[in-house]
Amino acid sequence: MRGQLAPYMFLSPTLILVTLFFFIPLVMVFILSFTKLDMTNFGILEWWKPVNWSLDNYVKIFTNRFLSRILGNTIMYVAVTLALFNVGMALVIALITTHIKRRTGFAFRTLWFLPRITPVVVYTMMWRALAGPAPMGLINKYFLVPLGIGGGEYLLHTHPWVFIFLVNGFIGASFGMILFASAIESIPKDYTIASKVDGATTWQTIRYVELPMIKWPLLFVTTYQTLSLLTSFEQIMLLTDGGPGLYQTEVWSLTAYHRALTSYFGNTQWGYGAAWSVVLVIIGIVMAVIYLRVFKFGELVEEPKIDQL
């Protein structure tokens, strides 16, 4: 009996932490999303009782007049950041840095990785400083004003989306870059040599041989980054907080945060916010399933059919 218990004893600290701070909140959020729990009825509403559960929050979400705007923002934010940066730019950097001298490539990738290990607030505040109005904002002062572009306005007000893409993209790209680069470097040299002897240019070798061989990391990064972009809101919150116009840059996860944890009227609608989160989780799951289908997951794990020659 003791022998059987021992492994669980060793696991218990982690198990307790994961249960306390992940599984219980997960279940609670799900239950909360059916209740009207907020700051005003906290301690009064018996939210754990099914009689107090209803679909009202979900109805409220889907009849919200800003829903289409928030959804559109979310899709644009995820799609553009993903395509241009987290996968697109990551792939381009990985390809370039693996087709030049090894050390140079490695040094460049390390440099690119630095923002990721900078605290997100510091990093975002640096971008805010860059985007500031003339004469304080560096972009205005050293580029736009000398070139005579724009009137030196606060760029986060005039082009909020551009900065949201850049701020997320530069960090986001480094994740895919590292994974793609190591995947490309682990392709056996014989394949690329064979391809070149077969008559391919470097670009054709990349297109027909290297890219298909890093299908797995591509799938993984695309899926993982979609989910992480869907749920990330800290940079947007720090940059524009959904503004500057009404819901102009508000994305789904930021809405959930706003509804649940901040409010214009000093009352935080925990139940309503939880419902926004639950819908987001469902969207994420659906996206992941779609990716697996599109990338033909089944084909990747096909059984070999060996027979004697």
């Binding site: 056996p188 014989d190 394949y191 040599i193 064979a194 391809s195 070149k196 002897v197 077969d198 008559g199 391919a200 240019t201 027909y208 041989v209 298909p212 061989m213 299908k215």
Partner: peptide, 27 residues
């Protein structure tokens, strides 16, 4: 390499794993 009209066979075979036999030969 592509201007030299050379065929090469490797110890590892170096067949492109994502292509069928036809596509490998046709490459």
């Amino acid at each position: 390499p592509k201007e030299r009209n050379i065929g090469m066979v490797f110890q590892s075979y170096a067949l492109y794993p994502h292509m069928t036999t036809f596509d490998n030969i046709a490459y």
